[in-house]
Every structure is written in structure tokens, then in C-alpha cells.
Design a protein around this nucleic acid. Structure first.
Lengths: 237, 237
DNA sequence: ACCTGAACACCGTTCAAGT
DNA sequence: ACCTGAACACCGTTCAAGT
């Protein structure tokens, strides 16, 4: 029995880079997108060009165009790749209540966005069309319907959670699209001078996680008020 | 008596373009930004370049650099100009309740964003630093404090409304950052086939205004639950 | 003070060509 | 089938120069 760790785990017939010439894996749509996403995450969206991506891949920039028709298609692939990171265990026992299902989705989305801050403008801009999100939508409509929400309400709730999460991620993560903004200290000084009560409130410190959770729970609480007292338990009063 | 309509209404000593040579107003930071914003709104952000802006202004592209150090500064000016459109009548009678104050702010922000959809990535990306928004924050903290919210809660509420509004505007308005997305029909077909319950819910039609209002009120309702029963009116069970 | 124009180091993409 | 390389029409920005 072979007991070393690498016994075929990386795929059945994947060639090692021992005998073959190329140090890089064979070019493919997936590998190009994976490499591009790494570039975006490490160097920033501004440093992603077809030419630099080609260089990173060790290939003529035009080789990319064999797999992707243009830069926009590359962007689509990147967004797709980000959404694909959302893993909602569709049959998980954890989400037996509609509320925990929605909370899990929202937090997961936020976590994934947090891994790719420079992707935010692209993600926010492209209509949601990913199986991960659509599949979740299907499930949410069913589960929310079972406790008394209408289809419209269910959709609205999911959409509001999604848009809130994206909006909050922007506020939290996004570097200004081009260059850095005025320093925190400068801003703080102006606020302290002109907006004293606001300054007091800010003095508590900005806690994005706490704020996000507050908004998330508030949104859920607010929608819950809309729900008719369903379930077979009698609608007394 | 001179009765024609144009009797000086356009400003005290503004030169007509009769005797003077330039057809355009004198170049200035404000005029450059105003022109750029019009280009963004009518032709799209992708069509805004320093060179095209120069052409639009009837001027060598490099002339712009006398007023703005670089394109990033132009972007800053554009975001500033958008925020400046937010007009909250700070002493309006309409906003005697904290809730109507917040609703007015959120709806106004949404309206302004709706006028400049292509500005969304820039707006969402830049930290809020505008007098309109900061001034509103100050007021909100005071007014919310008066009814029992802590400074932290007030800030969180304002921030959550703002981020929700921005996120929702993205979902509603944004053209994909580069090129158009797959057509509505294509998407609908796929959804109908694979996500039947979701399709039923969508069949009701997407009503962004209704959805936004639902989310807005839900967020407010949810935060209201956090508020201790303040006001001098007795806290009887 | 305000604007011009050439020049530099980049882009995305087309197209013909190589293997 | 897969990749290369020259070429085209763009960019933002620097820098020296004009008035």
C-alpha cells in the first residue's frame, strides 16, 4: 500500500510538470479565469489587463482570445467564479427554520464578497444569474411559502438581503475605484469640528460586523411583521 | 420698459456669446465636472476619457490638467457633484418624526442615484464625505437620540439605510460594467425550466419601487424593536 | 495664468500567419 | 487546434513650449 500523501489526489491522469516542457498547466478557460482572479485579488483590478494576464500565463496575450472572445467575457467568468464560491448546504439540517436559511445565505454571500473586494463593482453590476443564487432563491420561496409568506414577499426579502449585503460590502471593503481617499484622520478632524454629535457616536468605533448583523436582523424582523399568523396553529384574535 | 424675456435673468454680468470669441463658457473646475457628468449620464461611463472630454469642451485635452491633477480627481469631483444633489430640507416640518426624517433621506438618495446610474460604482466605492450626508448624519443622531436610540444604534441605522439603498440601486439600475448581459427572455426561460417555484414568484413581475419600500420599512421596523420605550410617556407594559 | 502639442508608455482587439 | 506577432485605434499623463 502506498501511503504517501500525494497518491493521485490531484486527479487521475494530470501530468506532473516533470517531463513535459511547460511549467504552466495547459491553457484553458478555467485556468485563465482562475489566474485572473488571483491577479485581481492580489494586485488589484487596475492591474488586470489582457497583456499582463498573458504575461502571467507565460503566453502571448492574444492566446487568451482563443478561449474568451473579449475582456468582457473574462469579467463574466470572474463574476461567475466568485458566485460559485457560495456553498449553501441545500439539505443541511442547520437551516430547518426559514430564518436561519436566510441568515446563512446572507452571511455566506458577505464572506465570499469579502474574499474578493476588488470584484465588487463587477459583481454588483451584473444581474444575478448564477445557479448558486437561483437555486437558493427556489429553496427560499418554497420554505418561506410554507410559513405563510407570499411568493412576492419571499422574493422581496431575498432580494433585499442580497442588495443590503452587497451595499454593505461596498461601504466596508471597497478601495476607491482609482486612488486612495483622504486619510481617516483628516476626515475625523473635519467631522469632530463640524458635526459634534455625529463625532460622539463615531467615537464608539466602527464595527462593520456588528453593524451588518444589526441590519440583517432588523430586515428579517421587519419582514416577519408582514407574515400572516400561518401554520396550522389557530389564528386567534 | 423692456419686456423681452431675457432681460438679465441669466446673471448680472455674464457675457453673451455675441462679441466674444469662445462659444463655450470659460473653463473652470466646476464647468469641467458639469460637462463630464453630462457625458457620463448620456453616453455612459465608458465614453468618458480625458481626450473626449477635452473635445467636448472644445479644448486641448491637456487643458483639463490645469484644473484637475488627474482623472481620479475628476472622478472625485463627479461623486461630489452627485452627492451635492441631495437636498434634505434640514428644518422642514415634514420630518418631525425620526422615521419620516430617515425615510426622506433614503428616498432622496435613491432618487439622486437614479439620475446617474453610471456613477454607481464610483459613488459606492468612495467613502461618504459629503456635507449633505454628514450633515444629515448629525441631525439623525440628535433626533434619534431624543427618542431613545443610542448613538451607535443611530449610526448603524443610517448606515444600513444608506448601504441598502446603494445596493438596491445597483440591482435596479446598473448596466453591466462593460457590455450588455444575456437578454431577459433567455434568463426567464432557464429559470422557468429549472426553478419552478421561483418562476411563479417572479411571474408577479419585478417592481423595484415596491420592493425597495418593503425593504426600507422593514429595516425601520426592525430597528424600532431595539429602541427602549423612551419618551416621558409612561412605559406601562 | 492659462492653454497647446509632441511624446511616452500603456491599453483592447483585428487579422494574417505560423505550427 | 492552438498560439504568435505585427498593426490599429485608442488611452492617461509628463514635459517643454507658447501666449
Amino acid at each position: 500500500m502506498i501511503r504517501n500523501a500525494a497518491n493521485g489526489l490531484s486527479g487521475p491522469s494530470e501530468p506532473r510538470d516533470s517531463a513535459r516542457r511547460p511549467v504552466r498547466p495547459a491553457l484553458s478557460r478555467d485556468f485563465i479565469i482562475k489566474t485572473a482572479l488571483e491577479m485581481v485579488d492580489t494586485r488589484g483590478i487596475g492591474q488586470l489587463s489582457m497583456r499582463k494576464l498573458g504575461a502571467e500565463l507565460g503566453v502571448d496575450p492574444m492566446a487568451i482570445y482563443y478561449y474568451l472572445p473579449n475582456k468582457q467575457a473574462l469579467f463574466d467568468g470572474l463574476v461567475e467564479a466568485v458566485y460559485a464560491e457560495i456553498q449553501i448546504d441545500v439539505d443541511g439540517e442547520a437551516s430547518d427554520s426559514w430564518r436561519s436559511t436566510l441568515v446563512a445565505f446572507a452571511r455566506q454571500l458577505r464572506t465570499v464578497l469579502g474574499r474578493h473586494p476588488d470584484m465588487l463593482p463587477m459583481v454588483a453590476t451584473r444581474p444575478v444569474f448564477s445557479p448558486a443564487v437561483l437555486g437558493f432563491g427556489e429553496r427560499a420561496v418554497v420554505q418561506l411559502g410554507a410559513v405563510g409568506f407570499t411568493g412576492q414577499q419571499a422574493l422581496q426579502l431575498v432580494n433585499c438581503l442580497r442588495t443590503f449585503t452587497v451595499g454593505h460590502a461596498f461601504a466596508e471593503l471597497s478601495e476607491p475605484v482609482g486612488a486612495p481617499a483622504p486619510s481617516q484622520d483628516e476626515v475625523a478632524a473635519v467631522i469632530a469640528e463640524r458635526y459634534p454629535k455625529l463625532a460622539d457616536a463615531i467615537a464608539g468605533g466602527y464595527q462593520p460586523d456588528v453593524e451588518y448583523e444589526a441590519g440583517l436582523q432588523a430586515m428579517l424582523d421587519g419582514f416577519e411583521l408582514l407574515r400572516p399568523p400561518a401554520g396550522e396553529a389557530g389564528p386567534g384574535s
